[in-house]
Amino acid sequence: MTLGLYLLKLMASRIGAALFALVGVLQILDLLDVSTDILDRNLGAGGVAYYALLRLPRLIEQSAPLAVLAGSLFAFGKLAGDSAVTAMRSTGISAYRITMMALPTALTLALAQLAIGTVIAPRTDTILSEWWQASTPPDAAKAVDPVTFRVGDEIVVAVPRDPDGTSLEQVTIYKRDASGRLIQRTNAQAAVYEDGRWRLVEPRFETLGDDNVVESAAQRMDWTANLTPGDVRALAMGETTVTAAEASRALAGGLSTRPRTFYDTQLQRSWAAPVACLVMMLLAAPAALANFRGGGVTLTVQCLASGLLFLVFDGAFTALGENGAAPAVLAAWAAPSIFAALGVTALLYLEG
């Protein structure tokens, strides 16, 4: 077995074990929260297993960076504890080369995280949402609250009573001009999704002029094609997860419930989030040079602390971007860039 293959195998086994453990803990905590609801709906053990399967992609996506950090620390710690790194360096193999030989494992998981976040998880989220909505027992006495959202430049308030998401009731649409001033209010008894677009039923219009209000009405009117039944179902269920495709559609005039800066940041985050796996390995790499007979545990703890601190800074920068306090590109990429540079600097310093 070559050295490169040995390092890849060691890294893959440690990171895989860490990922399995983290996903298992998150899965258990998630099931503790919803198992009672699933059983109350008479879905049985099969329903619990089906729910766990559909939630698995999101849990893997969330756990990947921490799994790389923990797995890399275990792998590099084993190499240092067995004096393998000392032996490799005595033959002229530097710590940089050791890190580069181990990096493909983190890169593979980063690509998997990207695929899960952009392709797999959005589909499983939709299946889970539809399955959960279909198994919800009907409650005629339950009040349905109106929801507020934007479609393009229009602000909409409506009641989503249909579980299929193909109709809205008590629809009020506020239309604005380019400067954001209200120019028209439309009230309709309902909005129905037909032939790929929404149509308003018995809409009444109030158009604001310079010094008057002009009223008019119609029997039916085409409204928008930028809103889907899936959007309505997500609004009714109060779902907060935003995929890259949904963020792109919101920026292009589709459904949005938050400021534009939020969707700009989420779009950048969809590409920046997988980079966290590579950053975590760079932050863990100095542990390979730890001397456990001379305080090497302290270096390992410092590597762990830097990885956790990266998650804190990453979350803080993301929050700033979502609220418009920082540009989206800076909010998404600042923490990965800073901490990747920190990891490389630490490795350079320890290598001498």
Rank of each mutant, 00 (worst) to 15 (best):
I60R: 00
V68W: 01
L54D: 02
S72C: 09
R55P: 00
R55K: 15
L56Q: 02
G77D: 00
G71T: 11
R55D: 09
A67Y: 04
Q62P: 01
Y51V: 06
L59S: 09
Q62A: 13
A67S: 15
F76T: 01
A70Q: 09
S63C: 15
L66Q: 13
R58G: 15
L79W: 07
A64I: 08
Q62K: 07
P57K: 01
P65C: 08
L53P: 04
P57S: 03
G71Y: 08
A64Y: 08
F74M: 09
V68R: 02
A64N: 08
I60V: 15
L53K: 01
P57V: 05
S63K: 07
P65R: 00
G71S: 11
L79T: 10
A67M: 08
Y50H: 10
A80W: 02
K78N: 14
G77H: 06
P65N: 11
A75F: 13
K78W: 13
L56M: 14
L69Q: 07
S72Y: 04
I60M: 14
F74Q: 09
K78A: 14
I60N: 02
A75W: 12
A67K: 10
L79Q: 11
A67T: 04
L54P: 10
V68M: 01
L73I: 07
E61A: 14
L66G: 12
L59P: 10
Q62C: 05
L79G: 12
L73K: 06
R58T: 13
G81D: 03
A52M: 01
Y50W: 07
F76D: 02
R58C: 08
L53R: 01
G77A: 03
L53M: 14
R58H: 14
P57F: 00
V68F: 03
A70H: 07
A70Y: 12
A70D: 05
Q62T: 14
E61Y: 12
